[in-house]
């Protein structure tokens, strides 16, 4: 074998092993969570676990339903605010802003994603919670507080990725549209945005994943009371918060139940990813020789 072929062989196998290693790590983690979590389902019953309303480890009650609702409500409420805000921002940055403004905005948005979540949580605790307490009564620790913090936290994710997919739309489409007498806004609305939609859906799903998985910042402002909320100013507990708060002292079935909580979280995220991929597949845009 000559030198080049040996090199090719080594590089190929090296890359293969690295790739396999990363995949293995994920599988080992999943396997571990399943092994530690499944006993909770066996002993407490899967449906009791999933749809039980009471979570009271001292009394041997492990129902996570309120926390599923808590996680979903906090996530959806934050997306409700974050999606319109970040899409308009992405459209501004990608299509409207002159180059020099874009050059300032882009690093600002990227910095936003680099701020540690404890800082967001601390800001929420010191500024947001007292403000909500004074404005709307109650303790201020609430689903709404968590959603506001999460909104700011998912903005950079959704903005950057949607902006990239807007800018990836071939310039020829814009020229064709302008050439037919369309205005800038008509071109964005009818041509550029639909063509970038699959990428924008991906951006939203990744933002959703970030929101549903966020733990620390949420714990600091959400109140962590296990209950099904009746208003957005009620405190709730999320699945992630449940694991983080109680893992330090849990033993026996309680310990298994926390891993069970992780399995539920994992399932929710898997379902979201499947839905996202389905949407992306359904609305994929054929740009001739490839898909956006």
């Amino acid at each position: 074998m000559d030198k080049n072929r040996i090199n090719e062989f080594l590089i190929e196998k090296g890359l293969f092993i690295t790739a396999i290693f990363s995949i293995m790590v994920i599988f080992v983690i999943i396997l571990f969570i399943l092994m530690e979590g499944l006993p909770a389902f066996e002993e407490y019953g899967f449906f009791n676990f999933l749809f039980g309303l009471a979570w009271s480890p001292n009394h041997g009650e492990y129902g996570v339903f309120a926390m599923i609702i808590g996680s979903l409500c906090v996530t959806l409420l934050s997306l409700l605010m974050a999606v319109p805000l970040s899409l308009l921002c992405a459209i501004f940055m990608a299509e409207v802003a002159p180059n020099n403004i874009r050059k300032i905005l882009k690093p600002v948005v990227e910095t936003l994603s680099g701020i540690p979540s404890v800082v967001y949580g601390f800001f929420g605790l010191i500024v947001l919670v007292p403000f909500l307490r004074e404005s709307f009564g109650g303790t201020g620790f609430s689903m709404f507080a968590a959603s506001l913090i999460l909104t700011v936290m998912v903005l950079p994710t959704i903005i950057s990725i949607s902006q990239d997919s807007l800018r990836a739309v071939p310039h020829e489409y814009r020229e064709a549209s302008f050439g037919l007498g369309a205005t800038n806004w008509q071109t964005i609305k009818n041509i550029v945005f639909p063509a970038a939609l699959p990428g924008i859906v991906t951006a939203i799903i990744l933002g959703m994943g970030r929101a549903i998985g966020e733990t620390l910042a949420v714990i600091m402002v959400v109140g962590n009371v296990v209950q099904i909320p009746s208003s957005i100013f009620d405190p709730v507990r999320t699945l992630t918060a449940n694991i983080a708060i109680e893992m330090g002292y849990a033993t026996g079935l309680h310990y298994n139940a926390l891993f069970g909580t992780a399995i539920v979280l994992f399932l929710i995220i898997m379902i979201l990813l499947l839905v996202a991929n389905y949407i992306r597949y359904k609305y994929k845009v054929d740009i001739g020789g490839g898909y956006l």
Binding site: P170, E172, Y173, E175, A176, S177, F178, G179, L180, G181, A182, T183, Q186, N190, I191, P194, A195, V285, D286, I287, L292
Partner: peptide, 30 residues
């Protein structure tokens, strides 16, 4: 109005990623 009166055909065919009908209807709709 000018670009409606002075149409343009480009070097590389650049239909929109839409149906054939919508490609032609686009200019009329806007």
């Amino acid at each position: 109005d000018l670009r409606k009166k002075v149409g343009m055909v480009f070097q590389k065919p650049n239909p929109f990623p839409k149906s054939i009908f919508e490609n032609v209807a686009y200019g009329l709709r806007i």
